[in-house]
Simulated scan of single mutants.
Amino acid sequence: MSISAITSNALSGMQAHSRSLAATANNVANVSTPGYAHLETSFSSHTSGGVTASVSPSADGQNVDLANEMLDRINAEIGFKANAVVFETGADMWDMLLTIKRD
């Protein structure tokens, strides 16, 4: 796998977790809204690499559970941080290759 593919996969992971966090924030903001069905996030991977997050209203019309929203927030935070570390490592590898090439 190339360095650019690694950073691209990590970037798609950060974007997916950002989208998940936005859905969680929307759920918390609408916790008292009558008739609001919470948004669910589902992740899917691609055969070419990377991941996407799709957000859709709950099929069962379930209302917002703040405990589950807190867990979803923590999950999004951990996932984003893990992908950020991979992205930074890929960027460091690029820097190292450029340094070697210059010398």
Rank of each mutant, 00 (worst) to 15 (best):
M1I: 07
M1L: 08
S2L: 12
S2M: 06
S2F: 00
S2P: 10
S4F: 15
S4M: 13
I6W: 00
N9D: 12
L11R: 13
S12Y: 04
S12P: 01
G13H: 02
M14S: 05
M14V: 13
Q15P: 01
Q15D: 12
Q15K: 10
A16M: 04
H17C: 05
H17R: 05
S18E: 09
S18A: 12
R19F: 06
R19L: 14
L21K: 02
L21S: 10
L21V: 14
L21T: 12
A22H: 10
A22S: 13
T24C: 07
A25H: 09
N26W: 01
N30V: 14
V31N: 07
V31C: 04
S32M: 12
T33C: 11
T33Q: 07
G35E: 02
Y36W: 06
L39T: 13
L39E: 09
L39K: 09
L39A: 09
E40S: 12
T41L: 06
T41C: 13
T41P: 10
T41Y: 09
S42M: 10
F43K: 03
S44M: 09
S45V: 12
H46P: 09
H46K: 15
T47A: 14
T47I: 15
G49N: 06
V51Y: 01
T52N: 11
S54N: 14
V55I: 13
V55N: 09
V55T: 14
S56Q: 14
S56L: 10
P57I: 01
P57Y: 03
A59M: 11
A59Q: 12
D60C: 03
G61C: 09
D65A: 05
L66Q: 03
L66V: 01
A67N: 11
N68L: 04
E69I: 02
L71H: 05
D72V: 02
D72Y: 00
I74F: 03
I74W: 05
N75P: 00
E77W: 06
E77I: 07
I78K: 08
G79T: 01
F80E: 01
F80N: 06
K81D: 13
K81A: 15
A82G: 11
A82H: 13
N83L: 07
N83M: 11
A84W: 07
A84I: 02
V85Q: 14
V86H: 00
F87V: 07
F87M: 03
E88Y: 03
E88A: 15
E88C: 08
G90N: 05
A91V: 15
M93L: 12
W94T: 15
D95E: 14
M96I: 15
L97E: 03
L98P: 01
T99P: 03
T99G: 15
T99H: 08
I100M: 06
I100R: 07
K101E: 02
K101A: 11
R102N: 02
R102G: 04
D103A: 15
